Simulated assay, not measured.
Amino acid sequence: MNISQEIRKRRLALNMTQEQVATRLGVSAPAVNKWERGASYPDITLIPALARLLNTDANTLLSFEEGLSPEKNLAIQREVERRVREEGYDAGFSYAREQLRAYPSSDELAITLASYLDGALMLYQVPDLERYRPQIEAEYERLASSSVNAVRDQALTMLVAKAMAQEDCGRAQTLLDRIPEPTIDKQEQQAALYMKQGDYERAERLWETRVTKSAGALIAALSNLSEIALRQGSLDEARDIARRAEPIARACDLPRWMSATLELGAEVAQHDAEATMRLLEEIAASMKHMHVDDIDSPLHRYVGLTGISQLSQQMLALILAEVQTDDAYAFLRQDPALNERMRALINSMQPQDSHPTSI
């Protein structure tokens, strides 16, 4: 994003008109309009006042960083993960903030790091949640007004989920209403254009993304149908629906845990101890041995499963918390033999080389 886009984005976020900005700075409205169109730039003497007016700083306002390359973006993500895993959550969190200050215009990086750090709070059982959670949620709020549609929609989706978790259905609906209905499948048209131009690698990248997202969306739909069946007391139907996810994940070369977690809910609801333990073990093995750099599949040649890897950490955090405290797993904890088996499994699922006490 260049300075013209930065000015426009921040002005709109503050609900200010170009005329209001012009009046505050003592310039004409057409001058502000030219700034935002990139036809001209503010005089250097106006930069400090303009930065203060837009609630930012001169360094951010003057950033001409157009955005990170996919390779640099991925490298930053992996370094944040490494620091959280090996040096503790605070080290990864601090490094992430440094990178966001270095690349203040990269909303794509911001949403990725916010989502990862949000999930890692539970995964690494960070004790001082309120030290970090408000900052992460503030980042979601900021990104909910992003000019990058995909980032905006993901941030809004995260805020909707948090509102629902807090039983604030009114706020959830208000946030949900801000997500626009798609009018055209731009990604599909772009992939078709790349193919027409003979740019097969870029076309394949887009279609790989579509395979992963579509399979994930289908599994999520089955998960919700299974959950509805459970709430209505149709246990056999819930189990039947849940088991349909496995061949979908297998056909798309997705990790086993994605379908196994769906089946887990049905087996837990029916208090099937052996099936529950078997699925927990399959999930643990799948997550433990999932290395995105080792993916060997024609469906993930270029894009890989980085996003799925981050999701697996969030799911692992949820499962670790549930099996230890949720009443749904009480039938396992009450049986001494099963409880011992479950404890050993939990220990094997804990993140390795983590040092939460170093925060």
Rank of each mutant, 00 (worst) to 15 (best):
Ile184Val: 14
Ala110Lys: 04
Glu130Thr: 02
Pro30Lys: 02
Leu280Ala: 10
Tyr89Trp: 06
Arg152Lys: 11
Val27Met: 01
Tyr200Leu: 15
Ala285Tyr: 11
Ala242His: 07
Ala285Glu: 07
Gly170Lys: 12
Met158Leu: 04
Cys169Gln: 13
Leu100Phe: 04
Ala242Val: 10
Ile44Ser: 11
Leu143Ala: 10
Gln5Asp: 12
Pro70Asn: 12
Arg10Val: 01
Arg231Ile: 04
Ile3Pro: 00
Tyr194Pro: 02
Glu227Pro: 05
Thr306Tyr: 05
Asn15Thr: 01
Gln166Val: 06
Asp326Asn: 03
Gly88Asp: 09
Ala114Asp: 07
Thr209Asp: 06
Lys162Val: 15
Thr112Met: 03
Leu332Ala: 00
Tyr132His: 12
Glu263Leu: 14
Leu159Gly: 05
Glu36Val: 10
Leu53Lys: 04
Phe93Ile: 11
Gln5Asn: 07
Ser354Trp: 05
Ala13Val: 02
Ala220Lys: 15
Arg11Phe: 00
Ser223Asp: 11
His289Val: 13
Phe93Tyr: 02
Ser234His: 12
Ala344Val: 02
Arg171Pro: 07
Gly265Val: 15
Leu218Lys: 00
Ala317Asn: 00
Asp253His: 15
Thr45Lys: 12
Phe64Glu: 06
Glu340Trp: 15
Asp199Val: 12
Tyr140Gly: 02
Val268Ser: 00
Ala328Phe: 00
Leu316Ile: 03
Ser4Thr: 07
Ala273Lys: 13
Glu340Gly: 12
Asp326Leu: 00
Gly92Arg: 03
Thr45Asn: 01
Ser259His: 06
Gln18His: 07
Pro134Phe: 13
Gln135Ile: 01
Glu108Asp: 14
Thr276His: 02
Leu332Ser: 02
Pro356Leu: 01
Leu123Arg: 07
Leu109Phe: 09
Ile359Pro: 06
Asn224Phe: 15
Ala245Asn: 10
Ala192Arg: 08
Ser63Gln: 04
Asp177Lys: 14
Pro255Tyr: 11
Ile111Lys: 05
Arg205Asn: 12
Met349Pro: 01
Ile241Asn: 00
Arg152Pro: 02
Asp236Lys: 14
Met258Val: 09
Leu316Phe: 04
His300Arg: 11
Glu139Asn: 05
Asp153Trp: 13
Leu318Pro: 05
Met122Glu: 07
Gly307Lys: 09
Ala91Thr: 13
Leu230Asp: 08
Met342Cys: 12
Glu204Cys: 12
Arg244Leu: 13
Pro70Ile: 13
Asp293Pro: 02
Leu74Phe: 01
Asn149His: 10
Pro48Tyr: 08
Leu159Glu: 01
Pro182Cys: 14
Ser63Trp: 08
Tyr329Phe: 08
Glu227Lys: 13
Leu345Tyr: 03
Gly233Asn: 03
Cys169Ala: 13
Thr17Val: 09
Tyr200Pro: 00
Glu282Ser: 13
Leu100Thr: 10
Phe331Glu: 02
Asp57Gln: 08
Arg52Tyr: 00
Ser348Arg: 15
Ala96Asp: 01
Gly88Pro: 10
Ala245Thr: 14
Pro255Cys: 09
Asp296Ser: 10
Gln77Glu: 09
Leu53Glu: 01
Arg278His: 11
Arg142Pro: 08
Ala220Ser: 09
Arg178His: 03
Glu65Ser: 11
Asp199Glu: 10
Val148Glu: 07
Pro182Trp: 15
Gln187Ala: 13
Ala96Leu: 06
Ser63Tyr: 06
Gln166Ile: 03
Leu46His: 07
Ser358Met: 14
Leu12Pro: 03
